[in-house]
Amino acid sequence: MTAGDSGGGARVKSAVRTVELLEYFAGRPGMHSLAAVQEAVGYPKSSLYMLLRTLVELGWVETDTPGTRYGIGVRALLVGTSYVDGDEVVAAARPTLDRLSDDTTETIHLARIDGTNVVYLATRQSQHHLRPFTRVGRRLPVHSTALGKAILATYSDEQVRTLLPETLPSLTGNTATDREKLIAELHRVREQGLAVDHEENTLGLRCFGVAIPYRTPARDAVSCSVPVARLTPAHEQMIKGALFDARDRLTMATRRL
């Protein structure tokens, strides 16, 4: 290996560590000690400290007054916001999300699959006092959400098996934790064109989701979340109809993307 190759490899390693650090902080809000970060990422303490100090100077990581604890910095917010602001699907979906919010009066989400999670790209808050709170950038397991299941239903069974482990993490007592049972449910989702989260992510909250088919398999979906205390059979049917209408509108809005 030449000196130039070695330097190039070192730069790649440093880039990987930088991304891993930012993802560590993004997934764990708050401030963390150097020891806690080192235990989680496993980097040598001296090189980890130097990398953290560099990221602090650049604004990607913040530190407390004594300089002993670290957390995600404001520049990460700027990059995340620019991703959403520049996304063509988010822009194309805005009128439909507004209309779906008005039609249902409930909380609306647009999300994208990212590995074994879905990430929220846009939300419209419910008009009711009793409502779920969701922020843009939130990540949830793909198997426990109506959004995720709607997207997974566009995958083949083998693609789902490749993506997900045999045993899935449980968020509530209703979460499907067996991959094969989830796959059987995805067959029904394909037939019905709509996925349901039966309090699998949050107790007391039911969600309905449809995939946006501008790609195959899909990567985005839209959903409507409703507290079960307010969900009547008539309201459920109205929401499902509104979601199918939104899917058709989004299919047209994203057909050239």
Rank of each mutant, 00 (worst) to 15 (best):
V89Q: 07
K45W: 08
E62W: 04
P95A: 04
A35E: 13
G59Q: 05
H109T: 13
V142C: 06
G137E: 04
G115T: 02
G73C: 06
D114F: 02
L152R: 10
T65S: 14
V118E: 07
D64Q: 06
A91V: 12
R112N: 03
T104F: 03
W60P: 02
G148E: 04
E62Y: 03
S126C: 04
T96N: 00
S156N: 05
S46N: 14
T96H: 01
Y49C: 04
E57D: 15
G148L: 08
H129R: 13
L97Y: 02
L130F: 12
T96Y: 01
P141Q: 07
Y43H: 08
Y83N: 09
I72F: 02
A93E: 03
S101Q: 08
R124K: 11
V41A: 03
V56R: 03
R53M: 13
L110M: 10
A111F: 01
E158H: 13
T63Y: 07
A150H: 11
L48R: 07
V37C: 01
K149Y: 04
T105Q: 12
W60V: 02
R131C: 04
G148K: 08
T96M: 02
S47N: 11
Q38K: 12
G71Y: 01
V136C: 00
T154C: 10
T68R: 14
A122R: 06
D103R: 09
G80L: 06
A40C: 03
V74K: 13
L121H: 11
T123G: 02
D85Y: 12
G86A: 11
A146N: 04
V136A: 05
Q125K: 12
A146W: 08
R139M: 09
T145H: 09
R94G: 00
R138T: 15
V79I: 13
E158W: 11
T145S: 14
R99C: 00
R135Q: 12
R124D: 01
Q127H: 12
E158Y: 10
V84P: 05
L97W: 01
L147Y: 06
V136F: 03
L152S: 07
A35R: 12
T105G: 00
L152Q: 09
T96S: 13
G59R: 08
L78D: 15
A111C: 12
L52R: 02
H109W: 06
D102F: 07
E88R: 14
R138P: 00
R75G: 00
V118F: 05
W60Q: 07
R135H: 13
A153C: 11
Y83C: 10
